[in-house]
């Protein structure tokens, strides 16, 4: 079952979009459309699904339309053409066609959001920020308190409830942002570059924490990132965007193995392969019993999904290792692959 469905979704900023849509259909890029109509083409013809419990990462350079597409899900950006549907219980609700009341309920209970710049109210305490969604939904204060406390505990901020938000470091502020998003118990989570403003060490830690939270609660997450390693680490699937269009969708390994364009290939060239590539990706095909493999024959074979990091550790000792299901990884092949084909 899908949690979010984008159906040929276009977002155009500034006035009646008809002509801009025609131009976009003809394949003109954003600059050309703006010159012709004065309107900004945010996203054009995006089609994508997010299954329940899945993390899909929207990735691309800044200005590629990732955040714009994300904001169409909870109606922060208007959809000019096409459709965005979001699961509310048993049914899929079309966001552009939703009544004001429906959109209100969607935002209160079904979709929550985490922002790059945290979006915390600086005059409020940590607890009052976490409880914002519940407060807006009109939940009584006493009930709010216990849920807020529980939520703060899951992000490791027990004992900080009564502090002012400004006293917290960036990493802790974003933990508050996460707690706020989780506190509404919305099954769908939109994350707009939530970790980009943090330093690398904290970023990694929060990514791990998010994955842990995801293991526990299984939300459907649409995650925007410009960081390839983050995308490959978190995303079950990745949608690569360029100039307002989705150019490729797939798992990390599919995209690496078969980039559809130079843009994608360029993008992928800069990733850190250690956690993405596996022994299976690197093995020389069908070379099970070749000369030179002899000394390694008695070695226990690596499983095909062993990550590169461990393959390298194993290859430190030997020249080559067999892979389960046939094939061999050789030190020389791996090194050649890593230094650029």
């Amino acid at each position: 079952m899908n949690a979010i469905e984008f159906d040929n979704c276009s977002v155009i900023f500034g006035g009646r979009p008809d002509r801009s849509l025609d131009l976009a259909d003809e394949g003109l890029d954003r600059a050309a459309i703006e010159e012709a109509t004065g309107q900004v083409m945010g996203v054009h013809d995006a089609t994508l699904e997010v299954a329940e419990g899945e993390i899909v990462v929207l990735m691309g350079l800044s200005g590629s339309g990732k955040s714009t597409l994300l904001r169409a899900v909870n109606g922060l950006n208007p959809v000019a053409r096409g459709d965005v549907r979001v699961r509310m219980g048993d049914q899929m609700i079309s966001v552009p066609a939703a009544s004001r009341d429906m959109l209100h309920r969607l935002r209160l209970n079904h979709v929550s959001m985490v922002f790059q710049q945290f979006g915390l109210l600086p005059w409020r305490s940590v607890a009052d920020n976490v409880g914002l969604g519940m407060e807006l939904a009109g939940i009584a204060k006493a009930q709010r308190r216990s849920r807020v406390a529980a939520q703060l505990a899951t992000v490791g901020l027990e004992g900080w409830a009564d502090r002012q938000v400004q006293e917290l470091s960036g990493g802790m502020q974003q933990r508050v942002g996460l707690a706020r998003a989780f506190a509404t118990e919305a099954p769908i989570l939109l994350m707009d570059e939530p970790f980009s403003a943090l330093d690398p060490l904290i970023r990694t830690r929060l990514q791990d924490e998010l994955m842990e939270l995801q293991r526990q609660t299984r939300r459907s997450i649409l995650f925007v990132s410009h960081d390839l390693d983050e995308a490959f680490k978190l995303g079950n699937r990745i949608a690569l965007m360029e100039g307002g269009r989705i150019v490729q969708t797939g798992t990390a390994r599919q995209i690496i193995a078969d980039p559809v364009s130079d843009y994608v290939a360029d993008f992928v060239a800069h990733m850190n392969p250690l956690d993405v590539l596996t022994a299976g990706d690197l093995s020389a095909r069908g070379a099970g019993g070749r000369a030179g493999a002899g000394p390694q024959a008695e070695e226990a074979p690596l499983s095909a999904d062993t990550p590169l990091r461990q393959v390298l550790a194993a290859l430190a000792e030997r020249e080559a290792l067999p892979v389960q299901g046939g094939g061999v990884v050789r030190r020389a092949d791996v090194l050649r692959r890593l230094t650029g084909r």
Partner: peptide
């Protein structure tokens, strides 16, 4: 604008937006 957007994303009505943000 970021604070406004955050409150709207969490379902603030125009009146709540005025009084709480």
């Amino acid at each position: 604008a970021a604070l406004r957007e955050a409150a709207v994303a969490f379902g603030a009505t125009p009146r709540q937006l005025l009084w709480k943000v």
